[in-house]
Amino acid sequence: MSDIDLREMYRRYIEAINDRAFERMDEFISDRTAHHGKPGTRDDVIADLMSIVDAVPDFH
């Protein structure tokens, strides 16, 4: 993946988070991934993202 492609993917990822479109995370995060340095899942990452925006609703 080129730097430009990576930049565009990351831009779309941040846009999805800012839009609270967590159902789109399968576009960006593998089902099995590292999470806080340990094996985890996409659902673990989504749960963390959701807890952040629940705690700080204006988070962008």
Score class of each variant (00 low, 15 high):
residue 29 I to D: 11
residue 60 H to F: 00
residue 29 I to N: 10
residue 29 I to M: 07
residue 55 A to L: 06
residue 39 P to F: 08
residue 25 M to E: 06
residue 16 A to W: 11
residue 12 R to P: 05
residue 52 I to G: 02
residue 15 E to D: 14
residue 41 T to V: 04
residue 60 H to N: 11
residue 13 Y to F: 15
residue 13 Y to W: 14
residue 36 H to S: 06
residue 38 K to W: 01
residue 4 I to Q: 10
residue 56 V to I: 14
residue 21 A to L: 03
residue 36 H to R: 12
residue 6 L to Q: 13
residue 39 P to M: 10
residue 1 M to Y: 09
residue 35 H to N: 12
residue 14 I to G: 02
residue 26 D to K: 09
residue 44 D to P: 00
residue 8 E to A: 15
residue 50 M to E: 14
residue 46 I to R: 01
residue 21 A to I: 01
residue 38 K to F: 07
residue 5 D to M: 11
residue 31 D to I: 05
residue 44 D to Q: 03
residue 16 A to G: 10
residue 56 V to C: 12
residue 47 A to Q: 04
residue 9 M to N: 12
residue 3 D to Y: 02
residue 48 D to I: 00
residue 8 E to M: 11
residue 38 K to T: 01
residue 30 S to H: 11
residue 28 F to Y: 14
residue 20 R to K: 12
residue 38 K to Y: 04
residue 16 A to N: 05
residue 26 D to E: 13
residue 12 R to C: 14
residue 45 V to T: 12
residue 15 E to F: 06
residue 34 A to V: 06
residue 54 D to G: 04
residue 24 R to F: 08
residue 6 L to M: 12
residue 6 L to H: 08
residue 3 D to M: 10
residue 42 R to Y: 12
residue 20 R to T: 01
residue 43 D to W: 00
residue 31 D to C: 03
residue 58 D to E: 14
residue 30 S to P: 05
residue 40 G to L: 06
residue 41 T to I: 02
residue 5 D to Q: 13
residue 30 S to N: 10
residue 37 G to P: 09
residue 40 G to M: 06
residue 25 M to K: 07
residue 26 D to L: 05
residue 27 E to P: 10
residue 34 A to Q: 13
residue 42 R to A: 08
residue 59 F to W: 12
residue 12 R to I: 04
residue 45 V to W: 03
residue 35 H to Y: 15
residue 4 I to C: 03
residue 37 G to D: 06
residue 26 D to Y: 15
residue 52 I to L: 15
residue 23 E to P: 00
residue 27 E to Q: 15
residue 32 R to W: 09
residue 52 I to K: 13
residue 49 L to N: 01
residue 20 R to M: 02
residue 7 R to T: 03
residue 44 D to H: 07
residue 39 P to V: 06
residue 40 G to A: 09
residue 47 A to M: 02
residue 27 E to D: 15
residue 60 H to T: 08
residue 11 R to T: 11
